[in-house]
């Protein structure tokens, strides 16, 4: 692996401006460093530039200014194909809407993550099985997503994100489609993964979710403010703030 000491994410003046007219600064140039093993929440209301941040961090879109280093690799200098490969190998995505293929069983959904990174076919099912066991779904590996609860579906998605052993677990509103109980189980799982050393980046509008992270980064109107302070929130978090601020 590349320089174990390098931060997982390093933004150096990264910004994205859609050329006009009029030009829109979706993300103003910002600095951000996320070290290996951190659990960071990027929190902000809708329209604040969260999606832009997610797309840049997830290599789905490139910044118009600055340099983005992922695992110490300058992603801006890469060809499209290499950026795609890097995305597939180093980033595990978890989406609000799960994005599970409805006709495929849990284990098949997880093996999908190994199709494009060249994992030998015979290894895939055992690895997927292990990943599902890791997220506590060892007993439901053959279930179709339609037969799973929302929380279970998200855990399948997390297993899929984990199975390729990424450097970063990038979660976009992971509890957005879940009820409180299911959201809690998913958040507990993320904390557990973090405790095992996984780097977790959660993008959310929900301060309750953000409160579970050890570090919070606020984003508002395209301005990323790295700092321990919580952004203004419409309602005070119910969880003790001591947990939120590490």
């Amino acid at each position: 692996m590349t320089a174990a000491s390098a931060p997982v994410i390093e933004f150096r003046g990264v910004g994205l401006t859609y050329p006009g007219p009029p030009p829109v600064a979706a993300l103003r140039p910002c600095e951000l460093t996320i070290e290996r093993g951190e659990f960071v929440a990027v929190v902000g209301p809708s329209g604040s530039g969260k999606s832009t941040f997610l797309n840049i961090a997830g290599l789905l879109d490139g910044p118009t200014s600055g340099t983005y280093l992922l695992d110490g690799i300058d992603t801006g200098a890469l060809r499209d194909a290499d950026r795609t490969a890097l995305r597939g190998r180093r980033i595990g995505f978890v989406f609000q809407s799960f994005h599970l293929l409805p006709q495929r069983s849990a284990v098949e959904n997880v093996t999908l993550a190994m199709v494009y990174n060249g994992a030998p076919r015979r290894d895939r099912v055992p690895l997927a099985r292990r990943a599902l066991e890791r997220v506590g779904l060892g007993h439901r590996i053959d279930a179709l997503p339609t037969r799973l609860s929302g929380g279970e579906r998200q855990r399948v998605a997390i297993a899929r994100a984990l199975v390729a052993r990424p450097s970063l677990l990038l979660c976009d509103e992971p509890t957005g489609n879940l009820d409180t109980a299911n959201a809690e189980s998913v958040l507990a799982l993320l904390e557990e993964l973090h405790a095992d050393g996984m780097t977790v980046l959660v993008i959310t509008h929900d301060p309750l979710v953000a409160a579970r992270a050890e570090r919070t980064v606020a984003i508002r109107d395209g301005v990323l403010s790295d700092g321990p302070e919580m952004p203004e929130t419409p309602n005070t978090p119910e969880t003790p703030s001591s947990e939120a601020v590490a």
Partner: peptide, 26 residues
């Protein structure tokens, strides 16, 4: 437009990929 602008800004050097040995997607 943004993508186009980016491609102009970026010099696409395959060397960066080689340096870090990113195995290609298959």
């Amino acid at each position: 437009g943004a993508i186009g602008a980016r491609s102009l800004i970026r010099a696409r050097t395959p060397r960066a990929a080689a340096e870090h040995r990113i195995p290609p997607s298959v």
